[in-house]
């Protein structure tokens, strides 16, 4: 076991981990931040997407020890303290960008990562960016629409309702 320390959603945290402890296990089991989901556990689905030092990663495919000293952002850090949703979360709600909601934390964190570097993406850029995030409910159209709306763009012309 080794002691690790990092900053999660702006808060200094530390814990004891094994070499094989995944970042997602540290977040969920030790910090109680269960908003980050484990979907496939095979690096395919992206439900476990978080940001490490501002970069989108799959927390099921990174060891907790690799995040030593890093700044980690999870879905729990998105809404304001009073519960007000972030622009991306509000757009997912408004445009019905979720059904069961299991993939949504990963989708929101992926969308956040895209909009931070590309504030006005095209529909094609949004779809390309979501290649590592799988949703089995929505068929993606409303997720794409929500992300476009969150970027402040007109979504009237985008695919199916």
């Amino acid at each position: 076991m080794a002691k690790i320390s990092m900053k999660v959603n702006g808060r200094d945290v530390s814990g004891e981990v094994e070499g094989r402890t995944l970042l997602v296990q540290f977040l969920r089991d030790q910090l109680g931040l269960t908003g980050t989901h484990v979907g496939c556990d095979t690096s395919q689905c992206g439900a476990c997407t978080v940001q490490v030092d501002g970069k989108q990663v799959k927390s099921c495919t990174m060891f907790a020890a690799e995040a030593e000293g890093a700044e980690v952002s999870t879905i729990e850090g998105e809404a304001a303290q009073d519960g007000t949703l972030s622009a991306i979360q509000a757009a997912f709600q408004e445009h019905h960008g979720l059904q069961c909601g299991f993939c949504t934390p990963g989708m929101v964190m992926a969308a956040k990562s895209l909009l931070e570097v590309n504030p006005k993406p095209t529909e094609a850029e949004v779809r390309h960016h979501l290649e590592g995030n799988i949703c089995r409910c929505t068929g993606y159209h409303n997720i794409v629409k929500a992300i476009m709306a969150a970027s402040g763009q007109d979504v009237g012309a985008i695919a199916a309702e």
Binding site: S43, G46, A110, S113, L114
Partner: peptide, 9 residues
């Protein structure tokens, strides 16, 4: 290569 998260690791 892969997807954005893969490319960041």
């Amino acid at each position: 290569i892969g997807d954005p998260a893969v490319r960041n690791r």
